[in-house]
Simulated assay, not measured.
Amino acid sequence: MPQHVLILQLTGVAALVLATVAWVIGLTRILRQTREQTAELRSGHPLPTLPALPRQRQVGPALESTALTPAEEDAFAGLVRQLGGC
């Protein structure tokens, strides 16, 4: 050990090296899991669902419509004429 380097400095460098190694290992695991999940999606196997999350709808809501009376149609046509001039 060089004399001009303090033990605290060496400890700090060692802690940074250990943190870097732990970060690389964690990142490698996350990337590997992501790659496996992507392969499962491409192969058609469904991913496991979390019980705390609500299930997603497979289809949208039904289309709703209402018939307008002739007076409502006239009022709507007048509104469209007014806004069309803007």
Rank of each mutant, 00 (worst) to 15 (best):
L41S: 03
A19I: 04
T28C: 05
A19E: 00
W23F: 13
P46V: 06
R81Y: 10
A52G: 02
T69Q: 08
A71M: 00
L18R: 08
E64T: 14
L16I: 10
S65R: 13
G26A: 15
L18S: 08
I30N: 10
T69V: 05
V5R: 10
V5H: 03
P51H: 06
D74L: 14
H4Q: 11
L41R: 15
H4N: 14
L53F: 11
T34I: 03
A15S: 06
A22M: 08
M1W: 04
I30T: 12
R35N: 13
G85T: 14
Q58Y: 06
L53H: 08
A71C: 00
G85C: 01
E64F: 04
Q9H: 05
T20N: 02
E40M: 15
A67F: 06
Q33A: 11
V21Q: 14
L31K: 12
H45Y: 01
A62D: 13
R35L: 02
L53S: 08
V13L: 13
V59H: 13
P2G: 01
T66P: 00
P48F: 01
C86Y: 14
S43Q: 15
G44M: 03
L68P: 01
D74V: 04
V21T: 06
G84L: 01
L79P: 00
I25L: 15
L27S: 08
G78L: 03
A67C: 04
Q58V: 07
L10T: 01
L41A: 10
G12W: 00
L10A: 13
L8P: 00
G26F: 14
Q33I: 09
T69N: 04
G60C: 05
I7L: 12
W23Q: 07
V59S: 01
P2R: 07
E72V: 00
L18P: 00
L47V: 04
I7T: 10
P46N: 08
G84V: 05
R35V: 01
R42A: 15
G84A: 11
E73W: 02
L63P: 07
A22W: 05
P70D: 15
L79Y: 09
C86S: 06
I30D: 12
A22H: 02
L10K: 09
T66Q: 05
E64S: 10
V59W: 07
T11S: 12
